[in-house]
Write a protein that binds this DNA or RNA. Structure first.
Lengths: 247, 247
DNA sequence: CCGATAAGGTTCGATACCAGACCTTAAGGC
DNA sequence: GCCTTAAGGTCTGGTATCGAACCTTATCGG
């Protein structure tokens, strides 16, 4: 506004403007593309040894031209995250072992952004659990949830467990079939996955979280929306406490 | 191989991929720019007669080049939403009267997207109310909330009320100081505002909603997080019921 | 009345991205 | 063993956007 230095602090109206006029166009499409693919691989959505979808399909899904997508894939190839073979039956094959011993990659986002993600998660994930439990699930959906749970519980190794954990939470969100909610949970899980990779997690924490996962899945399958939400809230609180303490 | 032809229907893994590999790059920057500014004006964040921030500042806030921003402003000028004056003290002056009699603009988004927004809102806005109530508000924040409430209650005319309503909800979100949450509420309110503009709202509905607003603000100011959440949930449910019935 | 200043208006080259056509390689099917 | 097909690889022209400098207009202060 005419912003004379009259106010000591900001005009409330300005705050609203800042809220609505958020920045669009996240950096370059190329970079976001690399990040998105790398995330998918690290989350184990495309596990080691699997083949990515064909370039033309990926490009369309990500709303990006094939040239841009190819540059991104090239970058991942340079980063040794995948290899590419030509010809029919070819494609980009993932080469990523989530073993990384004490790698402890540095946090790449500012701490406050991560704390924000934890607070936001505390709202959306319990909401997702609640919504998922209220739906009547198809057999296939129930099956997917059980499979996700099974994968978390049988995960050997912390890195693998971390992947399976993220996928379990994404699975719950996808049960709601709400694009906005799925998007919110995805965002949050990406940041969470990064945070969990940067701190030491004890076996005791994992056991505790497994019990909570069991209870959450059970409540969702039983259609007990309130219980699903309550347990998910505890689960988020516990993880957040762990992270806030160790970051 | 991750993709053996065993799937009769879609592989659950595919659903997760679809979740993480969401489309980036919302169409053209120019269009999003026009939409964002038009929304700000229609929401009354820049009320009739006020001047927009200088182009250079706006461009930076929206993460867009000045040329693109100027094209957007030009489009709004063509749409008679503002006029522009040159020279010092000049700028783009909003010319928008939220009176529009029975205009009832058509819904521009697919119905299912709007229903999704209602479902998502039912999760994030109660969460925002809860989080806002848990915070210790500064005097200025409390003041802003009271002012927003006052503006809703004193709004003359339905269109003006609709603006003030959106701003009240945005104000609550901004109290949380959580960027992710603010963003979520903003998204939801934009869609909601559009929906409410497309249906006839009765005075009775407005009265009812005013009572709920009072209760919400009171609970937040009193620090009663659970009550704030409960009332906001009812509020969202009631609005959603109204909309689902009339759309 | 006149300079400083704060705005909008204009121009231009660089570049990221897109859309599509086309080429090359390697499996599979007949 | 050929032909189809499903993949990746390459090329090209077009366009949106950026960015940064520069011009023009109008107000304000002395």
């Amino acid at each position: 506004m005419a912003a004379p230095p009259d106010d000591v602090v900001s005009d409330p109206q300005d705050d609203l403007a800042a809220a609505v006029l958020r920045p669009l166009r996240a950096h370059h499409a190329f970079e976001s593309c690399v990040e998105m693919l790398a995330t998918s691989i690290r989350l184990g959505i495309y596990p080691d040894g699997s083949t990515l979808p064909p370039e033309r399909e990926l490009a369309e899904r990500m709303g990006v031209s094939r040239s841009t997508l190819r540059e991104a894939i090239g970058a991942l190839r340079d980063a040794k995250l995948l290899t590419t073979r030509r010809g029919r039956g070819g494609g980009s094959v993932v080469e990523f072992h989530p073993e990384e011993p004490g790698a402890s990659p540095k946090l790449q986002r500012p701490r406050e952004e991560l704390l924000d993600a934890l607070a936001f998660r505390r709202i959306v994930e319990p909401g997702a659990a609640h919504a998922a439990a209220k739906r009547t699930l198809t057999g296939q959906q129930a099956e997917m949830l059980r499979a996700s749970l099974e994968r978390v519980n049988s995960a050997a190794g912390k890195a693998v467990h971390r992947q399976a954990d993220a996928q379990f939470h994404l699975a719950i969100a996808s049960l709601t079939e709400s694009p906005l909610l799925i998007d919110a949970v995805t965002n949050v899980q990406v940041r969470l996955h990064e945070m969990l990779g940067a701190i030491p997690v004890l076996d005791r924490n994992i056991d505790h979280s497994r019990q909570q996962h069991d209870a959450i899945a059970e409540a969702i399958l039983a259609g007990d929306a309130f219980k699903a939400r309550r347990v998910m809230e505890s689960h988020c609180d516990d993880t957040a406490a762990l992270l806030r303490g160790l970051m």
